[in-house]
Design a protein around this nucleic acid. Structure first.
Length: 383
DNA sequence: GATCCACGGGAATACACGGATG
DNA sequence: CATCCGTGTATTCCCGTGGATC
C-alpha cells in the first residue's frame, strides 16, 4: 500500500464516522503478503525447497497443521515471492536469480483444491501460472489445454513446483488425482501437499505449522485491526480477549473481528463496542468450517445459504425450509432440497434430527456451520 | 460447431414405524 | 417373540439440457 492509499483511507474514515477503513485487511479470506509471526515456519519451508537455490528441483514435501494456523497464508505468500524471483510469470522478467543465469525458470503454482475440482480447471490454473497468454475459460477441450501446458514445460530448463492446497477436505482435489494429472504433462515437477494431514503413504519431508500461540495471535489480530479499522476505534484489551477466545485459530479470530466490524458499520457506530464483539463471536461456530469454503461454492449454493440465513426459524424439516427458500429464489423447492443435502454432506450445514412427525422416516433440519455475518457481508459482494 | 459445467427434475434407494404373520 | 411387510417419508444418485465461451 502506498502513501496515497493510506491518506485516502484516513480521509474516508473521517468523512462519515466509519469504523472500517479497509475491508480487505480485515477479511479472513484475504491473505496478507507478509504473514505475521510465521518466521520460523518460513525458514523451514525455505529449507524444504533449498535445492531451488542451486538451480534444481527440491524433493516433494508436505505442509501440515490445524485449521486456522495459517498454512495457506504462509505458502501463498512464499510462492508469490518465489515466483517474482525464479519464475518469469506472465512474461515479466523477474529479478535476477542466482542460479538462473542460463534462462532457467522455476514456477511456483499453488493450486487451491477448493476451487479446482476438475481436470479442466486444474490445467487452467496451472497454465495461468506458467504462461502469459490468456487462459480460456471454456469452449476448448481438456486435452487441448493439457497439451498447451505440456508444450510450455517441454524444455528441460523449465520447472514447476505445484502445491495442492486443501487436498484433504471434502470435495476438493485429492493429492493423488493431481499427481495423475501432472504425469502426462512434465517430469520437471515437484509436488507439495498442503493440508491438515499428509497424504496417504507420504513419507517425504514435512513442515508442521503449529497453531498460533496466544501472543502471536494477538499480534496477527492487532496488525489486521490497525490496518483495517479507523484509528482509535478499538481497544487493545478487546483484541487480547478475542485472541484468547480463538485459542490459536486465526480464522476464527479474524472472522469474529470482521463480523464485529460489519455489525458496527451497520449500526453506524464509531467504535468496535463489546456488544458487537460478543455477537460476532457467538456467530462463529465452535467446530465450524472455514469461511472460504462457503465463498468457493457456486453462486446458486451461496444464494441458497443467504436465503436460508434470512429465514426466521429453521428448526423445521428440510423440505419445509426448502419451500421457504424457494419462495424467494428462482430455483425450485426440489432443487434447493437437494442442494441442502449436498451442503450437509460437505459439512457446510449440519443435519439435526427433529422429533418424529407421525409416520415415516424422521425428518431433520439444517444448521449453518460457518460465520453467518461474515458470509453475508462477503458473499453478497461477489454476486 | 465444440467444449465445459452448472442446473434441475425425478427415479431409485434407504429408513422409520406400526401392524400382521409364523 | 422374532421377523416380515406395507406405507410414508427422507435421502441419494443419475443424466439430459442449456448457457457461456472459444
Amino acid at each position: 500500500m502506498d502513501i496515497g492509499d493510506r491518506i485516502a483511507r484516513r480521509q474516508t474514515a473521517r468523512r462519515g464516522h466509519a469504523v472500517v477503513v479497509d475491508r480487505d485487511q480485515l477479511s479472513p479470506v484475504v491473505h496478507v503478503p507478509e504473514p505475521v509471526g510465521r518466521g520460523p515456519v518460513l525458514e523451514e519451508l525455505l529449507d524444504a525447497i533449498d535445492a531451488v537455490f542451486d538451480g534444481s528441483l527440491p524433493p516433494e514435501f508436505a505442509v501440515v497443521g490445524p485449521h486456522g494456523a495459517g498454512k495457506s497464508a504462509v505458502v501463498t505468500a512464499l510462492f508469490d515471492a518465489l515466483n517474482d524471483r525464479f519464475g518469469r510469470a506472465n512474461g515479466r522478467i523477474g529479478t535476477t536469480t542466482r542460479a538462473g543465469s542460463g534462462g532457467a525458470v522455476t514456477w511456483f503454482a499453488c493450486i487451491d483444491g477448493r476451487r479446482v475440482r476438475s481436470p479442466f480447471a486444474f490445467y487452467r490454473a496451472l497454465l495461468s501460472v506458467v504462461s502469459a497468454d490468456p487462459v480460456p475459460e471454456s469452449g476448448v477441450g481438456t486435452d487441448a489445454l493439457r497439451e498447451r501446458v505440456r508444450r510450455r514445460l517441454e524444455r528441460p530448463d523449465r520447472r514447476v513446483v505445484v502445491a495442492i492446497d486443501h487436498h484433504d477436505e471434502p470435495e476438493t482435489l485429492a493429492y493423488d488425482a493431481a499427481r495423475e494429472l501432472l504425469e502426462p504433462v512434465t517430469e520437471n515437477v515437484t509436488m507439495a501437499a498442503v493440508g491438515h494431514a499428509v497424504p496417504e503413504g507420504f513419507d517425504g519431508p514435512t513442515v508442521t505449522v503449529p497453531a498460533y500461540r496466544r501472543h502471536e495471535l494477538i499480534d496477527v489480530v492487532t496488525e489486521r485491526a490497525s490496518e483495517g479499522l479507523a484509528p482509535g476505534s478499538f481497544d487493545h484489551e478487546s483484541i487480547r480477549d478475542l485472541a484468547t477466545w480463538a485459542d490459536g485459530n486465526a480464522h476464527d479470530a479474524l472472522a469474529a473481528l470482521f463480523g464485529a466490524a460489519v455489525l458496527a458499520e451497520e449500526h453506524d457506530a464509531d467504535r468496535l463496542d463489546d456488544e458487537y464483539l460478543v455477537r460476532a463471536r457467538a456467530d462463529v461456530p465452535a467446530e465450524g468450517i472455514h469461511l472460504d469454503r462457503t465463498l468457493a461454492l457456486p453462486g446458486t449454493r451461496q444464494q441458497v445459504l443467504r436465503n436460508l440465513l434470512s429465514l426466521e426459524s429453521t428448526d423445521r424439516p428440510i423440505s419445509e425450509v426448502a419451500s421457504d427458500v424457494a419462495a424467494s429464489s428462482s430455483l425450485t423447492a426440489g432443487t434447493i432440497k437437494r442442494f441442502l443435502y449436498e451442503l450437509a454432506d460437505r459439512g457446510v450445514v449440519e443435519r439435526v434430527p427433529l422429533a418424529s412427525n407421525g409416520s415415516g422416516r424422521r425428518p431433520s433440519t439444517v444448521e449453518p456451520q460457518f460465520p453467518a455475518i461474515s458470509f453475508l457481508a462477503l458473499s453478497a459482494k461477489t454476486e
